[in-house]
Design a binder for these strands. Structure first.
Lengths: 200, 200
DNA sequence: ACCTGAACACCGTTCAAGT
DNA sequence: ACCTGAACACCGTTCAAGT
């Protein structure tokens, strides 16, 4: 007899993974690495040497590698707060009177968060099989949140039926990538075009 | 008195840069490097070691570096034929009866070409200041071609006036990046949404 | 259980010597 | 004028030894 299926909400699963139980010294190192990564990435870009981040955090480089097996894990970890904020916002927007407007508000918030850190949109582009469980859990939480908003908007006949959340988020990520050097205003312009295209 | 300004057509400039005069042995090496890069990149992806490409081409690694100062130069060089084909297609489409349809046909051809080689969409994302003259010339030729089609479609009132070619191409590149692992069909679906959004 | 830093492997880049 | 391959520098990854 197999285990009970994981009926857990993706957002709850994410919170679990984001805060694994750790010995006190390990936790200190973990936090120091996040702080260091946040600073170094924002100053030197997403390709900054990982050794520099470890040095800045005052830990050995192997410690970094243990906590964050891939660069992408680290990139995603430093914005876990943004992901959780987006999920929370999505939940609140469920009760928004206009379902179509709720979706577009959330998409604008999404692009704002994801554009706030260099290299993040690329890290968020979904569908890599090699992604760690942690990164996959982020995608799953975002998808679950966006999916609920999209479905409501489609049920209200405000958004075309032949749009799905995976491609919609892929497109928004694409916009963030394309406008990375130009800023949020430009990203919002392009998002406006897309929103115009999916309405009905 | 300054030199006469470079009134040259961007497409002519590109053809110049793509076929620089070379000694016979240099040209042989150049071609061998292109062949090797094409094969290695398509088999091992756009991050394949450059040394392997040089070895496969039967030349020293420094020779590769001389001909193609950056990885991006090499990536772009192997698809110079695609760029020229797109420019030629754009010219032909100028005489297409429906100006809006001509633009969308060209955009679909663009995404097809650019999706055909892994890593190419990223190499085509414009606006890097560090780009070589060769890569810039490619962008300029594409922009000139797309710009003419867009302007005609806007003059015919088939496309909204507040869209410019730079952002439109950036968006199409981004779509190609976001759907790289999913294939051309998915890219075309997303392009459809954008085209719906820019119409009027 | 977790950490450390040195060792290793890999790859891009440069350069002195060659044709 | 162009080519070569070795030397160098850099960085990600692993591992034996330590707490």
């Amino acid at each position: 007899m197999p285990q009970a299926p994981p009926t857990t909400d993706p957002r709850a699963r994410l919170t679990e993974l984001a805060r694994p139980p750790m010995r006190a010294d390990a936790r200190r190192n973990y936090e120091a690495l996040l702080d260091a990564a946040d600073e170094i990435f924002s100053r030197r870009g997403p390709d900054a040497p990982l050794d520099e981040i470890a040095r800045r955090a005052g830990v050995g480089n192997a410690t970094l590698y243990r906590h964050f097996p891939s660069r992408r894990d680290l990139l995603v970890a430093i914005c876990i707060g943004d992901v959780e904020a987006l999920c929370a916002l999505g939940n609140r927007l469920q009760r928004h009177p206009g379902a179509g407007e709720a979706l577009t508000k959330w998409l604008r918030a999404y692009i704002k968060h994801v554009s706030s850190k260099r290299g993040l949109p690329a890290a968020f582009t979904t569908g890599r099989r090699e992604d760690s469980e942690f990164v996959s859990a982020c995608h799953a939480a975002i998808n679950a949140t966006g999916s609920a908003l999209l479905k409501k908007a489609q049920d209200a006949d405000e958004i075309r039926d032949d749009v799905n959340i995976v491609e919609l988020i892929a497109l928004v990520n694409a916009i963030a990538i394309a406008t990375e050097s130009q800023g949020l205003r430009e990203a919002n312009r392009l998002l406006g075009l897309v929103i115009g295209g999916i309405g009905r």
